[in-house]
Simulated scan of single mutants.
Amino acid sequence: MDKYGFKTLLVISALLVSMFADSQTIRTLAVTGHAEQQLTPDAFNLNFTFEEKGADLVSIKNAVDKQVAQATALLIDNNVLESNIRSMDVTVYPWVENDQRQRINKGFVYRRTVYFMHTDIDAFDAIIKKVAALSPQQIGQLALVNQNVDKLQRALIQAALKDAKDKADEMASAMGMEVGHVLFMSDGTSPPEHMFERKGRMLMAESADSFSSMPGENTITTKVEVVFEVHTVSSRPQN
Rank of each mutant, 00 (worst) to 15 (best):
Y4S: 07
F6P: 00
T8E: 15
L9Q: 04
I12Y: 10
A14N: 02
A14R: 05
L15N: 10
V17I: 13
S18W: 12
M19K: 04
S23F: 07
I26F: 05
T28V: 06
A30S: 15
V31N: 09
V31C: 10
G33R: 08
G33Y: 08
H34A: 09
E36N: 08
A43P: 00
A43W: 02
F44R: 02
N45F: 13
N45I: 06
N45L: 12
L46A: 14
A55L: 11
D56P: 05
S59E: 13
S59P: 01
N62Y: 08
K66C: 00
K66F: 06
V68N: 00
Q70N: 14
I76C: 11
D77Q: 13
N79P: 01
E82A: 15
N84P: 02
N84S: 09
I85N: 10
S87Q: 05
V90M: 04
T91V: 11
E97V: 04
D99L: 00
R101F: 13
N105R: 05
K106I: 02
G107E: 08
F108T: 12
M117G: 03
T119Q: 08
A123L: 10
D125S: 14
A126M: 07
K130Q: 14
K130R: 12
S135A: 14
S135W: 03
L142S: 10
L144V: 07
D150W: 00
K151I: 07
Q153W: 01
A155T: 01
D163C: 07
D163W: 04
D166K: 10
A168I: 03
A168Y: 05
A168E: 03
M171C: 04
M171W: 02
A172V: 00
S173V: 01
A174Y: 09
M175S: 03
M175D: 03
G176F: 05
M177K: 03
G180Y: 02
S186I: 12
D187W: 08
S190A: 14
P191N: 11
P192R: 04
E193G: 01
E193Y: 03
M195A: 11
M195E: 10
E197K: 15
M204R: 11
A205T: 04
E206K: 14
F211V: 12
S212F: 11
P215F: 01
G216L: 04
G216Q: 02
T219Q: 11
T219A: 08
I220V: 05
T221R: 13
K223P: 03
V227I: 15
E229F: 02
R236S: 01
P237G: 08
P237D: 10
P237T: 09
N239P: 13
